[in-house]
């Protein structure tokens, strides 16, 4: 008898369509669809995908409660032995959906789950709750991810003991397991120190947790005297994208002068973002970067001034390191220009 598995994928991997179809509501199909074939092949009949749930990424993000309820209902009725989602690579909404639905299936239905994604995917934030296999940041990584995911999934289905995260290839879940080391602590510490002094590789036994939180700045006292700047990760650029900001994995940001611009129109501005359906932003970019209404509030004296420049990049698969670098740089420009507050819009 083989284990029954339900697989969760998005509209893209089900070949329904790209961003223009990201709004589709969940559906359940018999058997395997798309990337599930690679998992089935690895399992060699020991486990099999019996149903595939397909859900649009935007639908899940915008209707999380409804999507969860519908999908949990289907999974409950099917009584699978296992639930597997993705892998999502570096697709942010997809990764978030995979991790969120897997966590819900595990917690509410008591069914074992697994997903996979790139380490920087926001969905990976749930790594302490569920098993997540780290993958490459794009779908070319499927070949490498499938065997690791399939193997760990089978181990979980068979109730076999799971090894440490580095042994079985999942993201560290913050769980410590006691075991006996062969060498005493003092010797291990000295060995590590010598390795460090000699610039040789060593692995810490206790990585320090990184809490990278920044405390909120004090509020603006008098809005009517404040200069406010707009920034966006939604890729709004002057028509023609003069700085050639990439539609995904952006390598830079743009600085654009909007002095005197009262309204963004289809003739003057557009989006460079390749991670959402661009139709609405291209029709009227104020839907992402609200310059028209900021000008209105400026004229009424609600705010002191809309800053003459806005900063934009494409937040689509863009690495955290790059995003940090962009903002650290343009924040200094904003500060030097005397900007009092920023409104950042994201798609």
């Amino acid at each position: 008898m083989s284990f029954k598995v339900i697989h969760y994928i998005n509209q893209f991997f089900a070949q329904i369509g790209g961003e223009e179809m990201a709004h589709v509501a969940p559906e359940i199909r018999d058997g395997v669809v798309g990337p599930g074939a690679a998992l089935n092949a690895e399992w060699k009949g020991e486990a099999e995908i019996v149903k595939t749930v397909v859900c649009g990424d935007s639908y899940f993000a915008e209707h999380e409660k409804e999507a969860k309820e519908t999908i949990l209902g289907w999974v409950k009725a099917e009584k699978p032995d296992f639930f597997i989602a993705g892998p999502a690579f570096n697709a942010g909404r997809y990764g978030y959906a995979c991790a969120t639905i897997a966590k819900a299936v595990q917690e509410e239905l008591g069914i074992k789950v697994l997903t996979g994604m790139y380490e920087e995917n926001p969905g990976a934030d749930l790594r302490n709750y569920i098993y997540i296999v780290p993958t490459a940041n794009n779908a070319a990584g499927m070949k490498k991810a499938a065997p690791v995911m399939a193997k760990l999934a089978l181990k979980l289905m068979k109730d076999e003991p799971v090894g440490a995260s580095i042994e079985d290839g999942y993201m560290n879940r913050g769980i410590r397991v006691n075991f006996f080391e062969e060498e005493r602590g003092a010797k291990r510490a000295v060995d590590m120190m010598i390795a460090k002094l000699e610039d040789k590789p060593f692995v810490t036994e206790y990585p320090m947790p990184s809490f990278d939180r920044v405390a909120p700045n004090p509020a603006i006292k008098d809005l009517s005297k404040a200069t406010i700047a707009l920034c966006t990760s939604g890729g709004i650029v002057p028509k023609g994208n003069p700085d050639h900001i990439e539609s995904s994995s952006a390598s830079h940001y743009g600085e654009y002068n909007i002095a005197g611009v009262k309204d963004l129109t289809a003739e003057t501005f557009e989006t460079a973002h390749g991670g959402y359906d661009p139709v609405y932003a291209n029709q009227d970019a104020d839907r992402v970067l609200p310059i028209d209404i900021m000008r209105e509030f400026e004229a009424q004296g609600v705010i002191g001034k809309l800053h003459d420049f806005y900063y934009a990049t494409v937040g689509n698969g863009t690495s955290v390191a790059n995003a940090k670098k962009f903002a650290a740089e343009y924040s200094q420009k904003l500060k030097a220009a005397g900007v009092d507050a920023v409104i950042m819009t994201s798609t």
């Binding site: 405390a215 004090p218 650290a328 924040s331 507050a341 920023v342």
Partner: peptide
């Protein structure tokens, strides 16, 4: 990063 630079 904007917050870190001291801008709300």
């Amino acid at each position: 990063e904007i917050e870190r630079a001291g801008i709300p």
